[in-house]
C-alpha cells in the first residue's frame, strides 16, 4: 500500500511543480524519479519520455504510467497517473468555480479579451515548434497543408484526419522504400 501512496505522492508533486507541461516537466521528473527514489535510471526515463511523446495522449500521463508500472505493475501505473492529474483537477476546479462567479465583471471581460489575443500567439508558437520538428521533407509538408486545408474547409472530426495522416505516413514511407 505504502508503495502506491509514494508513487501517487511523488507524481502529485511533479504535477504541482510543472508549469506548462511538456519539456518543463523533465527536470522535475529527473529529480523525483531518478535522484530521490531511484525508480528509473536517467536513460530509462529518457526512453519513457521519448515514447510518451510518440504515443497518443498527454506526455506527462504516459511517462507517469511507465514509471509506475515498472515499479509496481499495472496498479502502480494507475497510482502514478492518478497522482500526476490530481493537482490539476483540484486547482482547475477552484479557478473555474471562482472565474464563473466573476465572468461578468467588466474588468474580467476586458482582461480575457486581451488574454485571448495572447492565446492566439501562444498557439501560433506551438504550431511553429511542431512544424520545425515534423515538417522535414516535401511529403510531410503536403500532409500538414492538406490537414490544415481539410479541417478549415470540411466539417469532419479531427479523428478522421489523424487516421488518414497515419495511413499516409505508412504509404509514403513504403513507396520511398520501394523506389530506392
Amino acid at each position: 500500500m505504502n508503495d502506491y501512496l509514494r508513487l501517487f505522492g511523488a507524481f502529485a508533486r511533479i504535477g504541482v511543480l510543472t508549469f506548462g507541461g511538456g519539456y518543463a516537466m523533465l527536470p522535475m521528473l529527473q529529480k523525483e524519479v531518478v535522484e530521490k527514489y531511484g525508480w528509473a535510471t536517467e536513460e530509462e526515463l529518457m526512453d519513457y519520455y521519448a515514447i510518451g511523446q510518440c504515443t497518443p495522449g498527454v506526455i506527462a500521463v504516459n511517462t507517469a504510467t511507465f514509471v509506475g508500472r515498472k515499479q509496481k505493475g499495472t496498479l502502480g501505473g494507475v497510482a502514478a497517473t492518478l497522482g500526476v492529474v490530481f493537482p490539476s483537477l483540484v486547482i482547475i476546479t477552484v479557478i473555474a468555480a471562482f472565474l464563473a462567479n466573476f465572468a461578468d465583471l467588466p474588468v474580467v471581460k476586458n482582461a480575457f479579451a486581451g488574454i485571448r489575443v495572447c492565446v492566439c500567439v501562444l498557439i501560433f508558437n506551438a504550431v511553429c515548434r511542431l512544424w520545425k520538428k515534423s515538417v522535414t521533407d516535401k511529403p510531410a509538408l503536403v500532409i500538414c497543408l492538406a490537414v490544415l486545408a481539410g479541417s478549415l474547409l470540411l466539417d469532419l472530426s479531427p479523428v478522421v484526419f489523424v487516421l488518414l495522416a497515419g495511413a499516409a505516413g505508412v504509404a509514403v514511407k513504403t513507396w520511398e522504400a520501394k523506389r530506392s
Binding site: 504550431v127 511542431l130 512544424w131 520538428k133 515534423s134 515538417v135 510531410a140 509538408l141 500532409i143 500538414c144 497543408l145 492538406a146 490537414v147 490544415l148 481539410g150 479541417s151 479531427p158 484526419f161 489523424v162 488518414l164 495522416a165 497515419g166 495511413a167 499516409a168 505516413g169 505508412v170 509514403v172
Partner: peptide, 9 residues
Amino acid sequence: GLRPASAGL
C-alpha cells in the same frame, strides 16, 4: 504522418 497532421490541426 501523424506529427505534421497535428501541426495542421
